[in-house]
């Protein structure tokens, strides 16, 4: 990678907490475009830090972050854990499998319990849409949504935008240095069950991208065009002219009944093969939030395509974005000038 200077966040965003007037990060849907851009800009310094041999900051030293994962996760949990630790915070992971949730405790009681332990930020993943908001209403500290049901996964969308921005910058596409105006992105896969798709649709359209979504009818949510995207059932047509192709896996664990006849048939229609990729723009970027089902929605040679696939880049940006979110949301607790409770005077939203 070339040593492109990192743009500074100062001067381009409203001063102090006005740049990000939210206690929690529950979804991209709650954010204004400039607030998304602020988080992306804040993440740049952490991308730099993460590339140094010594990747430590003491910004969040003394703070406790609880990662409460009510649904299994490997990569997101690890990413949040690394992000918290690199910022110097004490990070505790709570796995649903080990928790009293299995013993019948209600979500509210769990939330109250977490709150009583005086966490400074809680990162939550839950299998039900809206569950993270429900917990946020019960606790006194910032809450980060690490995925709630089929609703939102905001840090995934932010890291995807950051990964895109970096990849485009390296290619000299200076027109995308800030927003993604006019960038043609095709998202293909299980849109219906995907919180990643929803957050990405909100984030990419807010940044100005032209978003197409592609899925068989059974996996396409009703009224999706009202979110400002163009729906397709024909993958070849959806790929035509695409500069970015984002693939999603089939979320079999959320399916109640049969949605596609077989994975073989699904691959036949919606698998990203080297041949099919030719329908997109030459040099189109390839993305996948993981975990990948190689040989189903994406072929090996496409997933690993040098210079085109930015799948590992997405993982790298994930840590930086989560560091940025944790650092920004704890500014009030840490009394950062311009972000203290007195500065906000109860105006937090």
């Amino acid at each position: 990678m070339t040593a492109t200077p990192t743009p500074s966040a100062s001067g381009r965003f409203p001063a102090g907490w006005y740049a990000f007037p939210h206690r929690d990060l529950l979804g991209i849907g709650q954010l204004q475009t400039h607030e998304i851009m602020f988080l992306l800009a804040e993440a740049e310094q952490w991308v730099e830090l993460n590339r140094q041999p010594s990747k430590h900051s003491n910004s969040l030293s003394g703070l406790t972050i609880i990662n409460a994962f009510f649904e299994n996760s490997t990569r997101t949990l690890l990413s949040f854990e690394i992000a918290g630790k690199r910022l110097g915070a004490d990070v505790v992971n709570m796995h649903a499998a080990q928790s009293s949730v299995k013993k019948g405790e209600t979500l509210i009681d769990t939330a109250v319990t977490l709150n009583a332990m005086r966490a400074d930020a809680i990162v939550i993943r839950h299998a039900s849409s809206g569950a993270v908001r429900l917990i946020a209403e019960q606790v006194d500290c910032p809450v980060l949504n690490a995925g709630d049901g089929q609703h939102e996964h905001p840090t995934q969308a932010l890291l995807d935008a950051l990964a895109l921005r970096h990849a485009l910058r390296e290619r000299g596409r200076t027109e995308f240095a800030e927003g993604l105006w006019g960038l043609r992105v095709t998202i293909c896969g299980d849109i219906l069950h995907s919180r990643v798709a929803r957050s990405n649709i909100l984030c990419l359209t807010a940044l100005g991208a032209e978003v197409r979504v592609c899925a068989p009818p059974a996996l396409m949510p009703a009224g999706i065009e009202e979110m400002g995207v163009k729906p397709f059932h024909d993958f070849d047509a959806a790929l035509d002219g695409a500069e970015v192709v984002m693939m999603l896996r089939l979320q079999n664990e959320r399916m109640n009944g049969q949605f596609v006849p077989s994975t073989r048939e699904y691959r036949h229609l919606y698998g990203l093969t080297a041949k099919r990729l030719k329908k997109a723009e030459p040099n189109a970027l390839i993305m996948h939030p993981g975990p990948m089902n190689r040989g189903v929605e994406i072929d090996n040679d496409v997933a690993d395509l040098e210079g085109r696939s930015i799948i590992t880049r997405q993982v790298e940006m994930g840590v930086a974005i989560r560091m940025a979110c944790l650092e920004v949301l704890t500014r009030r607790t840490r009394g950062v000038p311009g972000w203290s409770a007195a500065d906000m005077a109860g105006e937090i939203v």
Partner: peptide
């Protein structure tokens, strides 16, 4: 009910 509201909220919906 299937529609933009259910889609935005990510709720299981029926037509």
């Amino acid at each position: 009910t299937a529609g933009i509201m259910a889609t935005r909220l990510g709720l299981p919906s029926a037509p």
